[in-house]
Design a protein around this nucleic acid. Structure first.
Length: 557
RNA sequence: GGCGGGAUAGCUCAGCUGGUUAGAGCGUCGGAAUCAUAAUCCGUAGGUCGGGGGUUCGAGUCCCUCUCCCGCUACCA
């Protein structure tokens, strides 16, 4: 078989690290080809791999370095790229871009659609980015407009922004643009290049990394079956990992939903419409002469779309959203300061003006919040009984007072339901605060291996061994060095169970070992065999032991 | 161990090329108000900007070092 690059191990030509992988040296970070390694060894068998001739297709990435640097420089100047993205790219340019093989000799993956290449597949990141284009083509066929995809990829006026996580910067800033440049050189169809790649950091879950296999995190389907989508969208927008990793905390989710969405935004819309309903029979009252309070809040209304829009244009979503929420806060203050419940009795004109302006504010909020909470925005729009959709309104006209006097309002309803403590506690598990939620999905079992014969099994020589001595392996996090008695002799076994057992608690214990395993060196320590242990999905690990006392060296079969 | 990213108010985070009394949202506490999903509004408190050096007239912001977190990776049960 052809070894995948990463299964070839050898000495790094850059930093002489003896354990560099065929695709990358972990020590110095260099990206390598397997043949660049000195003393290459198969990671599977330990044998020296033989270089077998095969033909691969290469992408001449090196030829594009200058153009890529120019391209990124220009786009940065035009659209302001993020520092972390630029730094990442610079380090690549500094090392010099290398030509990259874009095919692999694997039996899975996207096949090369050419004669003579039946056994080859595309390198995963080469086809993944192309999938962006393929999927729009597929979509346009499905909707019966086979050319519609061209609007996305071939129209110079289209602004292509790649929203990604920090681990994908190189493919979206360097590899994919180079691929598109290469195509554009020789074809009449000219593809557009990313205008910006505002990579985010990572979103974690209750202080831990999201992990599907370990069941850590949220299953969106599952989540949406229990909660409406808008609070999640709001929470994600407000805690987006724009500059550093951030966390999804259930407590925080609850607080943002209750204290911000429901209390500030939802309550303003509600108190305004409820007031209009009761005092003006659900009809927009006439806006009279403006007072100081009116003018103040209208000033804020006027600048909000501009300021917020400015942030959004620069991919600063948290700040953009904060500006809009500040408008909602100002609206509440305005309502308070104007005291319409008093002027309703003392100064009807004044009261009418306050409510009129408040309704204009509600309309503006529906439009300005729409990118983040589209469904709730449409609900506000309906409550205001305005035609069309909030989505279709012009951002810049959000600040105009377009709800006419005498307009009949729709039915008022609660916009956001608060999340009770008990619900959050249930999510966190009865064990209580701060703990990650128990995975709702079934734990994933290890892949089932192919059936073996009894003869295969007989190749294993399993024996009972008693641990007579045990110590930590220096500079290792997982390894313990064991001296075991296997009846006829003593052996040294290195086992990766240091995170689950302390050396002293193992002494005197009987375990099962693989007696005829080829010896290996781990962290410089000779290991003559292998200790059997069981592990679960959370990395918990227990060694296998006989159920009763039995002589060391006994054969397990 | 290697590589990378962090460490700023109780919490979540902003602080650009170093420059006046370090900011926001939420939370705390006190007050006002009562139209509203007990929602709102005002005010208050709270930080040796992880520790220690250094550069500088001046550092959260630059350099060195240490500590601690997190991730990846190597150790493969």
């Amino acid at each position: 078989m052809f070894l995948p690059d990463r299964y070839v191990e050898g000495t790094c030509p850059v930093c002489s690290n003896p354990e560099a992988r065929g695709d990358q040296c972990e020590k110095c970070g260099s990206y390598l080809n397997p043949t660049e390694l000195k003393n290459p060894k198969s990671k599977i068998t330990g044998q020296t791999p033989v270089v077998r001739e095969t033909s691969h297709m290469y992408f001449p990435l090196g030829q594009y370095q200058q153009r890529l640097e120019k391209y990124i420089g220009e786009r940065n100047k035009r659209d302001g790229w993020k520092d972390n993205v630029l730094n990442y790219c610079r380090s690549w340019f500094k090392d010099g871009l290398q030509d990259r093989a874009v095919t692999r000799d694997l039996d899975w993956g996207v096949k090369i659609p050419l004669q003579g290449y039946e056994n080859k597949v595309l390198y995963v990141w080469f086809d993944a980015v192309l999938g962006y284009i393929s999927s729009t083509k597929e979509w346009s066929q499905r909707v019966g407009k086979p050319d519609e995809w061209k609007r996305f990829w071939l129209d110079e006026k289209t602004k292509y922004v790649a929203f990604i996580g920090k681990d994908n910067v190189v493919f979206h800033c360097i590899v994919f643009p180079a691929m598109l440049m290469a195509w554009n050189e020789t074809h009449d169809e000219k593809y557009i290049l990313p205008e910006n790649v505002p990579a985010n950091e990572f979103l974690n879950y209750e202080g831990q990394k999201f992990s599907k296999s370990r069941g850590i995190g949220i299953d969106v389907q599952d989540f949406l079956a229990r909660y409406p989508v808008d609070p999640l969208r709001y929470y994600l927008a407000v805690s987006l990992p724009e500059y550093r990793d951030s966390d999804f905390y259930w407590r925080d989710f609850q607080a943002k939903t209750n204290n911000e969405l429901a209390d500030i935004l939802g309550n303003f819309v509600n108190r305004t419409l409820a007031f209009a309903d009761r005092t003006f029979d659900g009809v927009v009252p006439e806006r009279g002469p403006l007072g100081d309070h009116d003018r103040q809040v209208l000033d804020i209304l006027e600048t909000t779309p501009v300021r917020s829009g400015e942030y959004y244009e620069h991919y600063r979503f948290r700040d953009g959203l904060l500006e809009v929420m500040n408008l909602a806060r100002a609206a509440n203050k305005y309502f308070n300061d104007s005291e319409p419940w008093k002027t309703a009795k003392s100064d009807r004109t004044r009261c009418a003006t306050t409510i009129n302006v408040s309704i204009q504010l509600a309309r503006a909020l529906a439009i300005l919040m729409e990118p983040v909470i589209p469904f709730s925005s449409e609900r506000i729009w309906k409550m205001l009984n305005l035609g069309g959709t909030a989505h279709a309104q012009s951002w810049d006209e959000a600040s105009e007072l377009l709800v006419p006097d005498g307009h009949r309002l729709g039915k008022t309803e609660i916009l956001f339901t608060k999340i009770e403590d008990t619900v959050i506690e249930a999510e966190l598990g009865s064990a209580g605060g701060g703990q990650p939620a128990t995975p709702s999905a079934q734990p994933k079992l290890a892949d089932v291996k192919p059936t073996i014969t009894i003869d295969d099994f007989k190749k294993l020589d399993l024996r009972i061994a008693k641990i007579v001595q045990c110590e930590n392996v220096p500079k290792s996090e997982k390894l313990l060095k064991l001296q075991v008695d296997v009846g006829t002799e003593k052996r040294q076994i290195v086992a990766g169970i240091a995170q689950n057992y302390k050396p002293e608690e193992l002494i005197g214990k009987s375990v099962v070992v693989v007696f005829n395993l080829q010896p290996a060196k781990l962290m410089g320590q000779e290991s003559q065999g292998m200790l059997l242990a069981a592990s679960d999905n959370d990395g918990k690990l227990v060694f296998v032991a006989p159920s009763a006392e039995i002589e060391s060296g006994s054969v397990v079969k």
